[in-house]
Amino acid sequence: MKPLSSLIQRDRVFDFLKPRESPVDVRHGPILYLDEVSVSFDGFKAIDRLSLTIDDGELRCIIGPNGAGKTTMMDIITGKTRPDSGEVWFGTRHDLLRLDEPQIATLGIGRKFQKPTVFEALSVFENLELAGAGDKRLWPSLVARLDAQARERIEETLELIQLTEQRDRAAGVLSHGQKQWLEIGMLLMQRPRLLLVDEPVAGMTEREMARTAELLRGLAGRHSVVVVEHDMGFVRSIANKVTVLHQGRVLAEGTMDQVSKDSRVAEVYLGAPEEELVR
């Protein structure tokens, strides 16, 4: 088996890890731009005038206590939840609030869910095949044939997520960590420009976690990656820039060292001792 580093090292660019041509226009600024976004559920403000920009090629970590609105923010970006007010732009050309989920996905925004969601009745191979970057419209899907190139991409991804041996098993029988990896693999198969990754290492072993960190770091640059994670050690190992979310708004932003010194940040993590943050 090829070591991971050979698959993601910068000087050898593997075709299947390259993002697809995306119509997104980033010449004049960031790839993702949220401005004064608010959403409330039954009067409860889950997102409160949130503004955030992600630069092209950036790897950004978002941390924050449970209920801070991290998942809701991803719901808004991917079209699952409509905000009450505010603006969300992908590049300078695409107003995401005018698009629905499949359109946003097709533009090149991929998402991994907090609770790993794979298609349990389908095989690992088929899960990756469906995620693949082909034409997702009705007729092309009906007559789609898997060509050699597409199959090779799937095989390479299988190797990368270390599920080659499970390729023909139903995804439902995988362990939690393997499902996480499979969903990451599906995300890669989509070849998105922007990856939104919600709590990717929950349920993973130390080793798997290190591998995930390596993978995400390798993706940055050609992709923009937004990672939501609770595990501070993990965040420290991948992020250069961290955004702290609290009660639906940005509490602090900066390097891990900067935000962990912030007294307000320490305050919201009350209960989680400060050392954990600083570790």
Partner: peptide, 28 residues
């Protein structure tokens, strides 16, 4: 046996997830 058929099974088991892959669930 077509890809559309596999999308159908995916819709059966997790229809919301399918949308985020770019498929139009309602058309399938």
């Amino acid at each position: 046996c077509s890809r559309l058929g596999r999308v159908g099974v995916a819709v059966r088991d997790a229809s919301n997830r399918v949308r985020f892959l770019g498929y139009r669930v309602e058309r399938v």
